[in-house]
Each structure stands twice: as structure tokens, then as C-alpha cells.
Design a protein around this nucleic acid. Structure first.
Lengths: 238, 238
DNA sequence: CCAAAAGTGTTTCACTTACACCCATGA
DNA sequence: TCATGGGTGTAAGTGAAACACTTTTGG
């Protein structure tokens, strides 16, 4: 890792949301290190790179997609952030006593310093994503927002905070479509909206409300083979 | 300045809002350096200091008040941020050719690096504030949001962005009271709200709307000596 | 022809906005 | 007693929520 070219003590943390099987999910990775270390996709900022670009890069590396919807939601800059207890556990489980010289290395110096995190959340079409583990990840995958593993440091709070911001931001239905494929039915829009807000909306009024926003264009009907009236497909206007 | 103890390439920028004479104002300082360099109150983060604490410190140093309302609104992390043109002008106007060794100094190295800004806005009771210039300020004072001088780097955009966020955040009237003194009349609340939103509200309905929020307690009447019915004073509930 | 779900129209209700009215104040 | 601005109640209007109804689909 080319530590020299990064901004010191500053990181980008991305909460990547997707929607699948009536569930809102987040992309989390599990570290190669011994011990169950789950974490958010994160990265550092090159000296010649805008932070927005760095966030794009982080999401692109883990998802494979381009043209990514990103939203800054908070910064996390407390001194501790439960870093010490994470590092202690990590070192205890992964390094023997004799590897003391390890602790003198640049990498060790880099990672044991305090970090300020810039938090972004991202909304992606989960069908477009093929999760790609980084070289320090054992695995990477989607976990339901309602049931995800304990994360390292203060990342549980970071994730919860991103979720709260998403719930608030999505009220006006302006960014919900980033979670959807190119074409979708009204029921899919409503399902996502109800899942994220946790509230139920009357079907007929929801349809009217959304169409009145005048952001959708109606396409052909979608014949699923179900023995009922086929719903229209919609697409967001450009 | 104790550069060693700060986080590198990271700064706190504070947009401090106050309200006076029917105008929303921001606190800006003018640099001691030759050339008209106006800027936002800003500072750096000590290694052993939460960023929220750093922001508190910045606002406290410039205003003298404690117990400060702060709201993070954005980060500014583009590579350039018009830094080069600012530094060029600053050096041209303030250093002679012979002072080349200056450029080797720690301070020079510190300030010429790229910075990522963490933006906070603050709402204060302007009557409580005695603006205090820092050691690099020639002066510090309040300027109307509708008419303030050109700022260095991209700080004009930072300020405008803070103002937009304030306009959005204040819709629910939840944080407006930080701009008011301990006790105030309904007309003062309405004046501030109208000034910030730029919209006019019917007096009688505004009163009802605010009282229905159930966040104010009514105190005694305020006798101003004007020959009309005295308005009630209010205070925000704890 | 029937069950299931989609789409549309209509009624009802609640809340906002507009406005009318009365009250307190001090010259 | 009068002009001025503050406080409250009520009518009108608007938009959301509830609900009834019609249409489409495939077994």
C-alpha cells in the first residue's frame, strides 16, 4: 500500500445500501485477520484526489459499478472511536511476542494513529453488483440492515447513523430510484419505501402521490404470468 | 503555533450566524497580511481532541461564549479549492524575493499543503458575543449574509452552502431559538424565521403554528412603552 | 367465470390559510 | 378616546387519506 501518497489520519467510510427480497441490505467485508473482524468498505485519500473521487473509488472497487450515487452524511472524529480495543484484540490474535519489530514498521505506525472518518452512504442497484473483496478481505457480502454482524471500532454507530440519514433523505422520494433497476413497477417503489421508512402506505394513494411528482414515465406493461392485471413498468425521467 | 500536535491537512471551518436589525449575519475576520484577505473562523484539530471539541474551541475563541450550538453541514475536500491562487497573491504581497528561506520553514510547509475542511455552522445570540480577533486577524466582525466581502479560497461557497443547510434545517423551527436571547416575543421569532426563509407568513397563523409545537412557555408581558397591547415574552422549554 | 391484483374516481376528513373581531396600551 | 399592534376565534379552501369501483390477467 502506497502510504506516502495518502492524506494522514483521514479515511473514507462508505455505507453501501442495496435492496433485495423485501430487505434493505448493506455491503460489509470480513477481514483476513484471525478473529471475526467485520467492517465497512473504506479507504484513504490520495494527495491528488478529491475526497468525492476517493469515495467513488472505494465503492467502485467493492461493487464493480460506475456512476455511483453518493451522499455525505457525517464525520466521525472522536479521539478514541474504540480503536484501542480493536487494535489490542487484532494484535493479540494475529501476532506473536517475537514480532515486535513489526510494530516499528510504517504500516503499523500508519494504522495505529487516530483516524477521522468521512462518512458517505451509497445507493446501488443490488442486481448490478458483484461484491469484490479487497486484498485484506476474506469475504464481502450483503447483510440485512435489521440484522448485521458486530463491526470493528465505532462502525456500528456509523452504519446506524447512515441509516437514519437515509430514512430522512428518502422522505421526498428523490433518491429512492438509485436502489432500483432501470425499469420497475409501482409496487417495487412502494415496497422499498415502506421497508426503509418502516411505515405502511395505502396502495392507491401512494400511486397517486408518486405519479403527481411527475418524475416517472410509464412504459409497457409487465406480464409476469400471474393471473391478475399486469402492472405498468416505469422509468425515472432524466 | 504548535503544529506538531495537530492533525495534518485537516481543518475546521465555522460559519457563525447571528441575528440583528432584521438581518442574518456571519462572523468574518480580516487577516493581518497585506491584501484584503477575509476568511471564516477556522482552526486545526489537536491529536487528543474530538473534532466537535475543536469546533467548540474555534467558536469560543472568536465569540467568547460557551455552550455553543454547532451543526456539521458538509466537508470540503477538493484538491485545489483555489488554494494556489490565494497563496500566490498572499506571498506576492507579503514577502520579498530575499525571504526564500521562509519557504523552507515548518509553517510554510504546513500551510501550503492541501487541506480538507470540515464545515460546521453555529447559531449564537449576537448580543452575547464580543468578537475577538485571533493573533493573525487584523479585525473580526459581523457581516450581513446578503452582503459580505469576497473570502479567500473557496470559502464563499462554504458560506453559501452553510446558509442553504441552515435554511433547510430551520424549517421545523427546532433550532431557531439559538439565535434568540433567553426571552423573546413572538414577533422576534417570526422576524428571524421570515428573514432566513425569505418568505412572509401571516402573523396570526404563525403564532398558532409555533404555539402548537408546544416548545414555548409563556412568561410575563413585555411593556415597551409603545402605545399598543404589550406582547408576551416566551422562553423555550428545556 | 373466478380470484387476485392493478388502476381510477369519489367522498371524507384534517389541516392550513385567510379574515374578522376584540383587547391592551399609552399618548 | 383613538391609533396601533397583539391575541383569539371562525370560515373558506386545499390537499391528503379512506374507500368504492372498474379493469385486466390466466387458470
Amino acid at each position: 500500500m502506497d502510504i506516502q501518497n495518502f492524506i494522514n489520519q483521514l479515511s473514507i467510510d462508505c455505507v453501501i445500501f442495496g435492496y433485495e427480497n423485501q430487505q434493505l441490505k448493506v455491503l460489509l467485508s470480513k477481514s483476513k485477520f484471525k478473529g471475526d473482524f467485520y467492517t465497512l468498505p473504506s479507504g484513504f485519500i490520495f494527495q491528488n484526489e478529491d475526497i468525492e473521487e476517493a469515495a467513488q473509488r472505494v465503492v467502485q472497487e467493492r461493487t464493480g459499478i460506475t456512476d455511483i450515487y453518493l451522499q455525505h452524511f457525517n464525520v466521525f472524529g472522536k479521539v478514541s472511536r474504540k480503536r484501542e480495543e480493536f487494535l489490542e484484540k487484532l494484535i493479540k490474535l494475529n501476532y506473536s511476542e517475537s514480532e515486535d519489530q513489526q510494530r516499528q514498521s510504517d504500516i503499523y505506525q500508519w494504522f495505529t494513529k487516530r483516524f477521522v472518518s468521512i462518512g458517505y452512504y451509497s445507493l446501488v442497484d443490488i442486481q448490478q453488483v458483484t461484491p469484490q473483496p479487497s486484498d485484506i478481505d476474506e469475504s464481502i457480502g450483503w447483510y440485512p440492515v435489521k440484522d448485521f454482524p458486530t463491526l470493528i471500532m465505532d462502525y456500528n454507530e456509523v452504519l446506524e447513523n447512515a441509516y437514519l440519514c437515509l430514512q430522512s433523505d428518502i422522505q421526498d422520494l428523490s433518491n429512492i430510484y438509485h436502489l432500483l433497476p432501470e425499469q420497475f413497477t409501482m409496487k417495487e417503489v412502494q415496497d422499498i419505501y415502506e421497508t426503509i421508512t418502516g411505515k405502511y402506505f395505502a396502495r392507491t394513494n401512494f400511486q397517486k402521490k408518486v405519479l403527481d411528482l411527475d418524475v416517472l414515465e410509464r412504459l409497457d406493461k409487465k406480464f409476469t404470468g400471474a393471473k391478475n392485471k399486469a402492472p405498468y413498468l416505469y422509468r425515472f425521467k432524466k
